[in-house]
Simulated assay, not measured.
Amino acid sequence: MSQTIALYINGLNVRFGGFAAITDLTLEIRYGESRALIGPNGAGKTTLMDVITGKTRPNSGEVFLDRKLDLATRGEAEIARSGIGRKFQKPSVFEALPVAQNLELAVRRGLGWGEMVMSRLSVAQRERIEEVLVTIGLQEDRQRKAAELSHGQKQWLEIGMLLVAEPKVLLLDEPVAGMTEAESERTVELIASLRSPDRAIVVVEHDMEFVDRVADLVSVLHEGRLLGEGSMQAVRTNPKVIQVYLGR
């Protein structure tokens, strides 16, 4: 069964001065899919996420959500409201606030500060927060300050802060970096639980065992170009990929 294209990237080029960060990159990422982006440092993975989220403007090429919204011309706030959520490598949570309040602020994201503080949550929003607390496994920690959480729990909380908005595309930048083995195992389970026919998941990660367990398809970038693509097994046996990345 063919899946609808969530992200359509065609002929993408990004330059910073004389440096080509991305060169003629074409990718299609579909709903229902968990896609991994791998490659050595400087391969263009973060730059691609920056383009998708509106942080960086490409020099040329197409980047569309649902084949309709031109992400290359939209601002970060509009792109976030359109259904694209991004978790950065370092957790970005409000450490002085309890877990539940972090999620409440995430629900109100995009409002002015006064409205954010004063507005009341709807019944549906409160129910969504409760669902997310269960999903990320922090329902028993709802009143703990985020600063008291382990590194892994902070990562899950940040994912939860994206989930309350029910994103269509979820971008996860090195989600298991710095985690214990048990936390990494829990993150595998969490990502599996987030899979949906109505959501695309994109993971940037260096842990190949983790990638093997969470990704349907793997795209390998090198010097801003697509070096190879396929299942993890196909990528592992690709001579070009072994030479520039996996063989290191």
Rank of each mutant, 00 (worst) to 15 (best):
R30Y: 12
G54P: 08
M232E: 08
L12R: 03
L37D: 02
M179P: 10
K45H: 05
T26A: 11
L133I: 05
R199C: 04
Q3E: 13
E130S: 08
G83S: 10
S2I: 11
D141K: 15
R35D: 01
S2T: 13
R186G: 11
R144I: 00
Y8F: 12
P239I: 09
A20Y: 15
D66F: 02
A72Q: 04
D216Q: 09
F64I: 05
R109E: 12
E33R: 11
Q3C: 13
G160R: 04
S231W: 00
Q243Y: 06
L157V: 02
E148Q: 05
S184I: 03
R67M: 02
S122L: 07
V211R: 01
R81D: 10
R126V: 08
L194E: 06
F94T: 00
E127Q: 14
G228N: 08
G110W: 08
A96Y: 04
E174Q: 06
Q243L: 08
V99A: 03
G75A: 10
V218R: 05
S92Y: 07
A36L: 01
E223W: 07
L105S: 05
K154S: 04
E181I: 12
E189I: 10
V203W: 00
P91R: 02
R57D: 01
F210Y: 10
A182H: 13
V132G: 06
A192M: 06
I191G: 03
R57H: 08
R108M: 14
S219E: 03
M49T: 09
G160L: 09
I191V: 05
E181S: 15
R108F: 11
L157F: 02
S193E: 08
T26I: 05
Y245A: 02
V244Q: 10
G224S: 03
R144T: 00
P167Y: 07
L48N: 03
L48Q: 00
A192F: 09
G110N: 06
T56L: 08
S122C: 12
P91F: 01
D173S: 05
G11M: 07
G39K: 01
A77I: 14
F64W: 14
T4G: 10
E181N: 13
A192V: 07
D141W: 08
V188R: 10
L162D: 03
E174F: 00
V244N: 07
L111S: 15
L149Q: 00
E104D: 15
Q233S: 14
G247N: 06
G44V: 04
G11R: 13
L194N: 03
L172K: 06
D212L: 11
K240L: 15
Y245R: 05
M208N: 09
R35G: 01
S196R: 11
D141Q: 15
E78D: 09
A124P: 04
R142F: 11
E209G: 13
P197Y: 09
D207F: 11
D212G: 11
E140Q: 14
F64Q: 14
I136T: 08
L48E: 02
L194A: 07
I29N: 06
L170C: 11
E223T: 12
E130D: 15
G18I: 09
G39L: 06
E174D: 04
F94L: 00
Y8K: 13
Y245G: 02
E127M: 11
L227I: 07
E166R: 15
D207Y: 11
G39F: 11
T53E: 06
I9C: 03
A165N: 14
E140F: 12
S193N: 12
E62N: 11
Q233D: 09
V176S: 03
